[in-house]
């Protein structure tokens, strides 16, 4: 590339951007101005857009969770479920009504006193598919993926206990060495 071409490409939008600040003072002054402008613009953000943002955040966080390797157990499913309901509904009992379940059943799932059954998960998939149709692309089966990924984390975190419990009763009667040449 000649110098002239190089200069030209440096001004081409797809060449990219160098947005690094040259000093802390410069960075702070631009940050203050930007924050003031954003706070003014935030006043005009509609309630619907706030809900859309929360739902998109939830979707991205669920996607990130299922991509994570097995780690310490935590009640992610119920936390994601709470975020989902609270983003859309003013009262959780209305969501329970929409899913045709009792508020107490919902409360037990949210508070980890009851495992979500297939019927609950299937209804949740149908509900979220309808809700996300106006938000962003959404794989409804992600609820199952989150649920089973969490189960896997819990199961693997207690590996020592269940291994010692079952190790002695599990045998291999057809070891692979049998097929050695």
């Amino acid at each position: 590339m000649t110098r002239a071409e190089n200069k030209d490409s440096n001004n081409h939008p797809e060449f990219g951007v160098d947005s690094r600040y040259t000093s802390k003072k410069e960075s702070q002054s631009e940050a203050t101005a930007l924050m003031e402008a954003r706070l003014a613009r935030m006043k005009n953000v509609s309630k619907d857009d706030i809900i859309r943002a929360k739902l998109m955040q939830l979707k991205l966080n669920m996607e990130a969770f299922i991509k994570q390797p097995i780690h310490e157990p935590h009640n992610y499913f119920s936390e994601f479920l709470q975020s989902y309901i609270d983003a859309i509904y003013s009262k959780r009992s209305i969501f329970a009504m929409d899913l045709d379940i009792t508020p107490s059943k919902l409360s037990q799932v949210i508070n980890n006193h009851r495992e979500p059954q297939d019927e609950f998960l299937l209804k949740l998939m149908i509900h979220s598919e309808k809700i996300y149709a106006n938000v962003c692309p959404f794989q409804k089966e992600i609820w199952y993926q989150v649920y089973f990924h969490e189960k896997l984390c819990k199961m693997m975190s207690t590996q020592k206990e269940w291994t010692s419990k079952f190790e002695n009763v599990v045998s291999v009667s057809e070891p692979i060495t049998k097929y050695e040449k």
């Binding site: 060449f15 951007v17 947005s19 600040y21 930007l34 857009d49 943002a53 955040q57 991205l60």
Partner: peptide
């Protein structure tokens, strides 16, 4: 933008400071 929305939801913001000549494009 995805990273910003995942972290900050309705408050999310992505910023950059391109040269004046290419700002229009962005």
């Amino acid at each position: 933008a995805k990273i910003a929305v995942a972290a900050y939801a309705e408050l999310a913001c992505v910023s950059l400071r391109p040269k004046t000549e290419i700002a229009k494009h962005y």
